[in-house]
């Protein structure tokens, strides 16, 4: 409803807003690839891919700094109002969350390097694979919600965060069972448990992005709106 489809009178302002959106999409793409690769490396215990992914995080950090600078400079020079203001502020938020997801991908990759590929039974990975699929999908959907300015997708992402959380809890129990079954599993299971925790955190960041998307679109706070009954998750 408040989607600005009119062009700005100042075309360079319009160009800057477009370039900001493009930078977010690009950064989103980078993070998606990073988290996909990190989970792939983890599941296939591919140390080469893990190293690559861990090293790739620097680019994500640089991208975040770039977006921050661009946003701050626009606030200083353009004094954005209303939709534009929300656009820029949420871009800062999203970039921050994406950077954190990038960090998570880096952590996953580093942890992968410590896991001994010979010892780990494939059985252990089923839950983690499921978890990573779900988290990755949450991140993708949240980014879709942001770029398409679609509050429905955003609400959906928030709703499905519960699934990620419950999956994490069941994984936690599963790993606990493995560790109690065979103490030799403790090291790897602990690593995998941390990985699952990281993936759960990635899901939380996806929710944050979804909230930013919701704010961008409606100007409201998603959780306040849920509490006040404006939005139902059911």
């Amino acid at each position: 409803m408040a989607t600005p489809d009119n062009e700005h009178i100042v075309t360079s302002y319009e160009d800057e807003l477009t370039s900001l959106t493009r930078a977010i999409s690009e950064m989103g793409g980078m993070v998606e690839v990073a988290i996909t690769n990190a989970t792939q490396a983890l599941i296939r215990v591919d140390h080469e891919l893990a190293k690559q992914t861990a090293n790739g995080d620097k680019r994500v950090d640089d991208m975040q700094r770039l977006i921050d600078e661009q946003a701050v400079s626009m606030i200083a020079r353009r004094q954005p109002m209303a939709g534009d203001l929300r656009h820029i502020v949420s871009a800062i938020h999203v970039a921050n969350d994406l950077e954190r997801i990038g960090d998570i991908a880096k952590n996953l990759s580093r942890r992968t390097l410590h896991i001994d590929s010979q010892r780990v039974s494939k059985q252990l990975y089923n839950g983690v694979r499921h978890m990573s699929d779900l988290s990755l999908q949450q991140v993708k959907r949240a980014l879709d919600a942001f770029t398409a300015r679609d509050s429905k997708i955003a609400i959906d992402v928030c709703r499905r965060d519960d699934e990620v959380d419950s999956l994490y809890i069941s994984l936690f129990r599963e790993f606990l069972t493995y560790m109690m079954e065979d103490p030799r599993n403790i090291t790897d299971c602990t690593h995998l448990l941390f990985c699952a925790k990281n993936l759960e955190r990635a899901g939380d960041h996806a929710t944050n992005i979804a909230e930013a998307a919701y704010y961008l679109e409606t100007g409201g706070n998603l959780y306040n709106d849920i509490e006040s009954g404006k939005v139902s998750l059911g």
Binding site: V10, M81, G83, G219, G220
Partner: peptide
């Protein structure tokens, strides 16, 4: 967060 599209258009330039 202006409600009206015209308001939004005016204040954002």
């Amino acid at each position: 967060n202006p409600i009206n599209k015209k308001t939004q258009d005016y204040i954002t330039g």
